[in-house]
Write a protein that binds this DNA or RNA. Structure first.
Lengths: 113, 113
DNA sequence: AGAACACCTGAAGAGCTATTCATATGTTCA
DNA sequence: TGAACATATGAATAGCTCTTCAGGTGTTCT
């Protein structure tokens, strides 16, 4: 650790900063999006609205077991929601914020290069 | 792998889907935000505009070595940019998209609970 | 009831990642 | 020039994560 060239600004920044707790929750959210399989699942849901596990496995070209594991993480975190219809379970994005986040990020990606 | 209850919708979804390559790049971006230390660094920069490594280490309460490693990842990915001033190196968020992403996510977090 | 189906779960291993320690580079100032 | 400072880098280790495999639950249909 070293000295502070601008102690005031550092102090001011620390005050308005996201708390360590908030930062952890934010990082947790981002980490969940930070996997190619989960990202593809989420963007599939963003496009399709609602899909069952087998549809998702087919769209993303991953084992249904892997999809199931991935969805559990997303479900637990409240990023996706599910509904049962017969033997199938349909998944959807849980809220508008997540949709915006995914959309904005995709735009970012596409404008960059 | 199982059958497709709605083959048409799956096919349509797969077409408009983010490509595996795009998904990977998006996941790479999110993964970088998906660590509490890096998240705190980024939000510190979002608030302060520009900070040197020692300021950041102080604000986030992490070793300056750890900060340096974290910043290298963010720099390499084009998420932050740096400028040297004497022996100090000032970091800032690289573009407006990242700022929006961070801002939107924080709002999301704060509205949720 | 039993078979087929859609999905879930737990355990285990391979691979990745973050932090630390030791050391190196580049800069200022006396 | 040399000492002090700010930051960067490489190697190593501990911890986490994703996928797979094997088996389990709940549902439909005959």
């Amino acid at each position: 650790m070293v000295q502070e060239p601008d102690a005031e600004r550092v102090a001011a920044t620390r005050d308005r900063l996201v708390t360590p707790d908030e930062a952890t929750r934010l990082a947790d959210l981002f980490r969940l999006l930070g996997d190619a399989t989960r990202a593809r699942l989420l963007y599939a849901l963003l496009e399709a609205g609602e899909l069952c596990v087998c549809d998702l496995a087919d769209a993303v070209e991953v084992t249904d077991t892997a999809v199931s594991h991935a969805l559990r993480l997303l479900r637990t975190a409240g990023i996706v929601a599910s509904r049962r219809a017969g033997r199938m379970i349909y998944y959807r994005l849980a809220d508008a914020h997540v949709r915006m986040l995914l959309d904005l990020s995709r735009e970012h990606m596409r404008e960059e290069r």
